[in-house]
Simulated scan of single mutants.
Amino acid sequence: MSAPERIPPGPVTSAETAGPADGAPGGGPSGVLALLARGELTVDGRVGGASNAVLRCTAELDGRRAACVYKPVAGERPLWDFPDGSLARRETAAYEVSRATGWDLVPPTVLRDGPYGEGMCQLWIEADPEAALLALVEAEEPGPGWRAVGFADVGEGRTALLVHADDPRLRRLAVFDAVVNNADRKGGHLLPDAGGRLHAIDHGVTFNAEDKLRTLLWGWAGEPLPAEAVGVLERLAEELAPGGPLAGRLGELITPAETDAVRRRVARLLRTGRHPEPGGDWPPIPWPPI
């Protein structure tokens, strides 16, 4: 396999992109982005269990404060199939696509300088521990309101059926993941909040030019896309056209070949009109799944 393309040099989130700090964190997207982009970052601690450095921080600007996650490029572990030092930009690119869909599945995210250099800064989300979106069940078929993913080995020679909720929020996320070519959609990356909104995090291994979709959200594989999703994809196709606003922003964050691949994936989804199905060249389910 040829070496991955290098990410083109580009600016971090600018003041113009971020907008004014109007009422952040509760004053709308522009206020949150301004706080994340220009606020002073104080490191409160390190989030354990992550493959790369993940720091819990507080951003403060003009008397406004918000908890956030800061992932410095210096703390990224090299990967064989992604250019070194590119994960923070991919996380930011995922937010830009999420924002363009109108679904806003990815929390507000910026690329900025921080205490340990350039990195991704994202609004911290408190998940509702009572919200159940995934389950392992000892059955051959999923129950009402659930979709089957596949059987998993649970030890001692036993298997259980891995299922996810038949939830329109997850279905939107399945479409989004197909667009950004998410190679690592695990259960721990799904953060439903107490208000019922679903947030999706950890998008460092996205946008590869080769098909690498690996996810737990296969429950709709091969089924027709909802009309809402088709409308969103049509809008994305317009914004991804050369000279379009999303194409321009992605051009600052991922390679030209990867941006072209996004266009092709959107076009393929519109052409087939169906959720993608697992291929045979790449493990379709991440492990461990959580």
Rank of each mutant, 00 (worst) to 15 (best):
E40I: 04
N182H: 04
E234W: 12
E140L: 12
W287T: 04
V163C: 12
R274A: 13
R90E: 05
D128V: 13
T255Q: 02
W80A: 15
A24G: 04
A139T: 13
A209E: 15
V149G: 08
G10H: 09
L236A: 04
E223R: 13
T159L: 10
A59L: 04
G155E: 14
T58K: 03
K186E: 11
E126S: 09
R197A: 15
A152Y: 15
P289G: 09
N182Q: 05
E277V: 12
G188R: 12
D166P: 03
G102T: 11
W80G: 04
P72T: 00
G195E: 14
T92E: 03
P20E: 14
E238N: 02
G248H: 08
A131D: 13
G204E: 08
L111R: 05
L111I: 02
W218D: 05
G117T: 03
I125Y: 14
C57K: 00
D184T: 03
A237I: 01
R271V: 05
G187M: 11
G231V: 08
G49F: 07
R65F: 03
T255R: 06
A53N: 02
L33G: 06
A148W: 04
L33Y: 04
R264D: 15
T215G: 05
V163F: 07
A257M: 07
L134S: 13
V69S: 00
L250Y: 01
G244Y: 06
G102W: 10
G195W: 03
R264H: 11
A3I: 14
G157P: 07
W220V: 04
T17H: 13
P144S: 11
N182C: 02
N208M: 07
V175Y: 03
A21D: 13
L136A: 10
V232Y: 12
A18I: 07
A50Y: 07
S51G: 09
L240R: 02
M1K: 11
D62P: 02
A50V: 04
P29V: 12
L133I: 08
G75F: 01
T92N: 00
D202H: 08
Y70W: 02
T101K: 05
G231T: 09
A267E: 15
P20C: 06
P224H: 09
T58R: 10
E138Q: 13
G150T: 09
A132K: 14
D167W: 15
N52I: 00
N208A: 13
L111Q: 06
P286G: 07
L36D: 01
R147L: 15
